[in-house]
Structures are given as structure tokens and as C-alpha cells.
Write a protein that binds this DNA or RNA. Sequence first.
DNA 1: TTCTCGGGAGAACGGTTGTTTACTGAATGT
DNA 2: ACATTCAGTAAACAACCGTTCTCCCGAGAA
Lengths: 206, 206
Amino acid sequence: MSHSHTVGVRQAQKQKTRQALLDAALQLLEEQSLSSLGLREVTRAVGVAPTAFYRHFRDTADLGVALVEQTLGSLHATIGEALAESGDGVRIDRTVALIAELVRTSPAHVRFIARERHGGVQPVREAIGAQLRRFADEVAAAFAREPEAAGWSEADLRMLAGVYVDLMVMTACAFLEAGPEGEEQVSSAARRQLRLMSLGRRHWLD
Amino acid sequence: MSHSHTVGVRQAQKQKTRQALLDAALQLLEEQSLSSLGLREVTRAVGVAPTAFYRHFRDTADLGVALVEQTLGSLHATIGEALAESGDGVRIDRTVALIAELVRTSPAHVRFIARERHGGVQPVREAIGAQLRRFADEVAAAFAREPEAAGWSEADLRMLAGVYVDLMVMTACAFLEAGPEGEEQVSSAARRQLRLMSLGRRHWLD
DNA sequence: TTCTCGGGAGAACGGTTGTTTACTGAATGT
DNA sequence: ACATTCAGTAAACAACCGTTCTCCCGAGAA
């Protein structure tokens, strides 16, 4: 008589090992790319039989897109907060600090996205591309709500938002490569880059 | 009694099959990443025995760094020409056109660089990073030669050059993803991005 | 010519891969 | 209480992998 929304011990255990597979894969992907990640490699790290993999994913590419959506999907809410800042200078600091904390708390996720964005697995590439396009849309919408956007064409606004998102991805990669000790240096460089873009934006309509 | 500079049939044949290995690898890497590229896979595509691979490279990672230097090394001369343009607007058109032609004539090389820049093989990542840093240095030197660079700190100039290079890599990736039909659209977007940066550069010292 | 060097061929090795098939047993619905 | 569903197991499969060893034979030096 239990309703469909009750979790049940059964489905809870299933999603538990599913998450274990995702976590193990993410860890293994720190030193290789998805197209070389083996099915057995993942199950061995978790401690389950190789065939158990098929109960959750069709292949490692399928696992990859799940990893993309879990990593980037939960980020839209966080991004919205930083974009709510109206001051141009304050938003720059907020955004860079957000990226820095993201890389600090979960570097493996960031590395995975950076690596597979242009990686060898097509479905994963497309999943990342779609998510980044969603981010750019949200940034463009936030820009459009501001008074500085007056006189801007929609295409130019979309271009500006695209540069903004790409700059943030590049900054995240720079944080990764620099390590914890070079964090402050990357931060200041990123802030200057954003300031350069902000200046260009102010004088766009001349 | 032949002098050391005479090629000889022996060394010519060796570099011939070495180049064949590089070409075959580049073609195979269009649909996968280097960390999953097999030694036998490459030799099979060329038509030589698997053991012949060891006469030229230690492993596939070694082949990767050779591929990086062959791809990016020959580009420094071409870049120098575009940077010689003094006009700010003309240089933008020249640069974007150069990237477009590069992607058109050898897309596999561009895809390889984009894919392995953050890929799973450390030595290759470092080789690409070193080459891109060289590009940024050249761009910074070209900027420093201009009158607009007056009052700029060396660090800010380096930052500007870094953004320039990263923007070009991103543009090359955009050309790849868009395909031949969307070439004009990517070109105009890239030109607007460069113009945005150029505007910010003009008002940097306020 | 004769000797040496070295790129390439061939076979074999132990190990790993993805996938299939049949099976177990505990949580679930009736 | 019983029947069913299904996540996970176990074993086997052919195919592939990187690497080692031995041999071959033509180019280049003597």
C-alpha cells in the first residue's frame, strides 16, 4: 500500500551504489580522460562485480553525462546569487571568489568539466555544451535587467555573456593549474580581466 | 666520405614512417583522446609491425608531445606576420581570418590541441602550456612595441596578451564546433569580442 | 667486397577489456 | 504467506593490449 513517492530500502541502496560508481569514476578521472576509463576499473574501485555496472549505466559515456549533469546542474542556483549583485565592481569580486571556492572545495569536478569539454566522447561534450549555454543565457538575462544594457542588441548581449562564461571557465582552469599557493595571483589576474571587459562594455556604444 | 648534412636513404625512410605514425595518430585522435590511443592502433593504421613503434617513440605520450611541437611550433612564424599589423582594427580582421584559415586547412591539428590542452596526459599538457605561453610572450612583445602601451605595467601587458591568446584558442574551438557553414557567424562574434577587449584596453588607464 | 649498424618483422607472453549467460537472495506487492 | 521483481554475483568468452625476445636484410662505412 506504500505510495510511489516513498523511497524504500530497495531504491535507496541502488542510488547509494550508483553514487559510489560516480564518485569512484570522478576520482579515477583525475589522471586520465573519460574515453580511456574502463568499466571494470570503476567497479573494482567501488568493490562490486563488473556486471553490476550495467544496472546503472549503459557504458562509461552514459556515466559521463550523468556526471556532467550532477556537477553542473547543481551550480545554477549558486550562480544566480552572484549575478544578483548589481554593482559592477562588487559582482566581479563575488564572481571570482565564487569560482575560487568552487575549485577549492571540489577540484575533481572542475577538472572533469575542463577535460571533457573538448574531450573524446561526443555525448559528454554535448551535455557540457548545453549546460554552459544555459549559464550564458542566465548571465545574458541578468545583464539585460541592468540599466547599462540600454541600446544593446540581443546578439551583442549574448556575445558579452558568452565571453563572461568562457572567462570563468578559463579562470577555473587557471586555479587548478596554479594550485592553492598561487590562488591569490590567479584571483587578481581574473579580476583584471573582468575589469577590462567591463570597461569595454561601458564604451561599446561609441 | 659523405658529409654529415647529407640525408641518406636510411634516415629519410626512418623519418618517413615516423611522419606516417604521427599522421595516423592525428587522424585517430579525431574521435578519441590521447590517453585512450593504443600503440597497436597506430601501427595498424600505418601498416607496420607494432614493435616498429618503439624505434620512434617511447610510448603514446611521447608521440603526443612530438605532435604538439610539430603542430604549434610551425605556427610562431605565421603569428608574427599578423601581429606586425599596426592598425588596431586591421589586426583584428587579420587575426580572425588567420585562425579561420588555420581551422579550415588543418582541423585535426586544432582539435588535437584543444582536446589535449586539459587532457589526461601530463607531459602533453605541459608541452601545450609551454607553447601557448610562448605565444603570449610574443603577443605581449608586439603590444609593448606600440604607442598605446605607454603607462602600462609589464604584468598588465602580460595579462592582456594572455587574454588575447586564450580568446584565439576559444575562437578556434568555436570554428570547429560550428563547422564550415557557421564560419561567418563565428568570425563576426570573434571580431566583436576582440573589439570589446580593444575598447577596454583604450580606457584602461582611468 | 666485407663488416657493421639499425629499422622493421614475427611470434609469443601475461594481463585486461567489454559483454553474455545463468544464478542468488532480499526487498517488495498482493 | 506466497509470488515476483531486481540489484548484485560468478564464471566464461573472444578480443585486444603493451612489452619482450629473436631474427632478417638492406644501407652505409671500411
